[in-house]
Simulated assay, not measured.
Amino acid sequence: MSKIVDGEEYLETEEVMEELAASKKLFYTSIKPNLQAYRFEGKKKPWYRKRDVLALKAGKPLRKASIAITGMFGSWTAFARAQYGAETELRSIEVTTLPEDAVERFHLPADQQFVKRSRLSRIDRTVICAWDTYYPVELVRDIIEPLKQGTVDHIVEYIREKHGLVVGRAKDIYSARMTTLDEQNLFQLPADEPVLILQRASYTRDKQTLILFSDMVLLGNWFVHQHEYDVSIGQRTRTSLLTSEEVL
């Protein structure tokens, strides 16, 4: 029996399996991980959006959500928490150097020591993002132990208050690739799936001091890169539009 919620039709598990004409084993191992589960009235029994089911049936790629990555100050985590109940958890804290690809792409020092904070974000028990943030050791030396205990969250604010350094410039590099075997296990994927890689170096406005470096692995069917900007191509000035008579 289907359910209509806010104008959207949802199906129970049995209806989904019937619609897809798939065995129970196929549903739970291959199809279910690609469908967003919805729970209504506080009940544990999941429902699935019918149009998502039909999209999978037609062999179309399914985007679970459109969480926009818009720039340095666009907080996708706040949106994900508000809209989807996303939860972020700390994985580890360690002192290390930057990844080799970060050093090459951003021309950063290969031997500088950083405090690396590794976290992941989940929605409905599904990992959608694994991210590492690197802070120069000299900027966060006094809070390494509190970081390990998970009692410090607003590190950028701490750096501003402690050292008077404010993020004023950032450089982003986006790329995409298929998941590694470790990532397939982390994201609980039945097969390899595209991921969006966002690497971001954040500096002071004069670009003389690196405040942090972020390395995010974002599950591709949850995120979209959104960028709005002015376009000047094809625009002409008033002078270029003047006739010969007007010039004279």
Rank of each mutant, 00 (worst) to 15 (best):
Y134M: 07
F114M: 12
D142S: 10
L120C: 10
E100T: 13
P136I: 08
F114K: 08
H163G: 13
D172I: 06
Q149K: 15
T97E: 04
L165K: 11
D111E: 09
Y158P: 09
H107M: 12
H163V: 13
D142C: 00
P136Q: 06
Q112F: 00
R122M: 12
L165E: 09
I159K: 03
I123Q: 00
A130L: 10
R125C: 06
D111G: 02
R160V: 01
D111L: 06
A176S: 12
H107L: 15
E157A: 12
L139E: 00
F106C: 14
H163Q: 11
R169W: 09
T126A: 09
D182M: 07
I155G: 08
L165R: 04
E89S: 13
R122S: 14
L120A: 07
Y158G: 13
T179P: 04
H107A: 15
D153V: 06
C129Q: 10
V103M: 03
I143W: 00
L98S: 05
E138H: 08
F114Q: 08
W131F: 11
P146H: 04
H154D: 12
D142V: 01
V166F: 04
T179H: 04
R91T: 11
D124G: 10
V140I: 05
I143H: 02
Y174Q: 07
R119V: 11
L90I: 08
L108G: 05
Q184K: 11
W131Y: 14
V127M: 08
H107T: 15
V167K: 06
G150E: 06
A110C: 10
Q113S: 12
R141Y: 05
E161T: 15
D132F: 01
L147G: 07
V127N: 09
K148H: 14
I159C: 06
V137T: 03
S121F: 02
Y174T: 06
R169S: 15
L181C: 11
G168V: 01
A176I: 15
F106I: 13
S92P: 06
V156Y: 01
V152A: 02
